[in-house]
């Protein structure tokens, strides 16, 4: 759907007068630690594997930020991970399977709740049975930990994490003259957006090469290629792309609050615009579905003010 092209231009890059449409999700934050930063990252990276979109992965996740030893409960290097799901049941299921299969199996790891408000979700309280009766719990202050004896020593996991409201599907599109330029711009955006707290960009490297639209000609599919933004479909479909655009990349943002997503979008779009029109960045747009998808609307012009 073509938007009115109002007059916002940053460094020669046209900003469409359109909005990103986001929807409510449920979220939690986990703190994963290990003996070294490398293994904390390995555990976190394993946990966030295959979690780009709730369309097929059940959950959308990402590493929010790296944590210094002084910022983690056990004084070791850590990673903060955010997980977003469409409902509590799915979030609870994904937390247990991913913590069990990806974090507990990662050498020297431990896992803690990164949020202590909201609805309780079982974590260690469900994983403890791996200890085959040798597991022990310990209540320190108000927090209960489960100590599961494992071959590398002990897997320490907090009994509960907590579910809070989240928002999924904040996004913007980078329209560029070439694929290389679109990718450079997307990388620059992700670098800037990684500095924003309370958000993750769940797709590979934070960038979506195959953005989707709602629905499909095939009834069983809930999403399909966003043909209006596919450069190879110019001339064949009702395109959104001007002739000079050869590649479009999307950045999807999940966050804990509207203001966090807006802040991340602003950081990302501004980073892209520093490259400017002279580096092949033609337009910034955003994906929406006419209000059918969700109640949160991030208008690009408002976000960039």
């Amino acid at each position: 759907m073509r938007e009115r092209q109002a007059g916002m231009i940053i460094n020669g890059v046209k900003i469409d007068d359109t909005f990103a449409e986001a929807f409510p999700m449920v979220a939690t934050r986990l703190i994963i630690t290990a003996d070294t930063e490398r293994w904390a990252f390995t555990a976190a990276n394993s946990m966030i594997g295959f979690s780009t979109s709730v369309i097929a992965c059940g959950v959308e996740t990402g590493i929010e930020k790296k944590l210094k030893p002084s910022e983690t409960p056990d004084g070791r290097p850590g990673m903060s991970v955010l997980l977003f799901a469409m409902n509590s049941k799915e979030l609870a299921k994904q937390i247990v399977t991913r913590t069990g299969q990806s974090v507990m199996t990662s050498p020297t790891s431990a896992c803690y709740a990164g949020i202590r408000e909201g609805k309780k979700i079982k974590m260690g309280a469900a994983l403890r049975y791996f200890g085959d009766g040798f597991q022990r719990s310990k209540l320190l202050g108000k927090i209960r930990y489960w100590r599961i004896p494992i071959m590398d020593g002990e897997f320490l996991v907090e009994d509960f994490t907590y579910e809070v409201p989240g928002i999924g599907g904040g996004n913007f599109l980078i329209l560029a003259e070439s694929r290389g330029q679109a990718l450079s711009a997307a990388e620059r955006a992700i670098t800037a957006m990684n500095r924003v707290e309370n958000v993750v960009m769940p797709f590979p490297g934070g960038v979506v090469g195959s953005g989707s639209k709602l629905g499909s000609k095939y009834p069983k599919l809930s999403a399909s290629t966003n043909d209006a933004f596919c450069p190879t479909l110019k001339g064949l479909t009702k395109t959104e792309l001007p002739p000079e655009v050869e590649s479009v990349m999307e950045i999807v943002i999940d966050g804990l609050a509207e203001k966090d997503i807006a802040r991340a979008m602003r950081a990302g779009v501004r980073a892209v615009c520093t490259l400017g029109r002279k580096n092949g960045i033609v337009r910034i747009s955003a994906g929406h579905y006419g209000g059918k998808l969700g109640p949160y609307h991030f208008h690009l012009h408002k976000v960039l003010k």
């Binding site: 056990d74 431990a110 320190l140 020593g153 002990e154 320490l156």
Partner: peptide, 25 residues
Amino acid sequence: HTLPFHHLFLAHLKRQGGAFSVLNP
């Protein structure tokens, strides 16, 4: 054993203050 739990446990004791403040988690 050198365990993350020991760090948490010693930090918990240290937080109680008094003579236990000398503990190094």
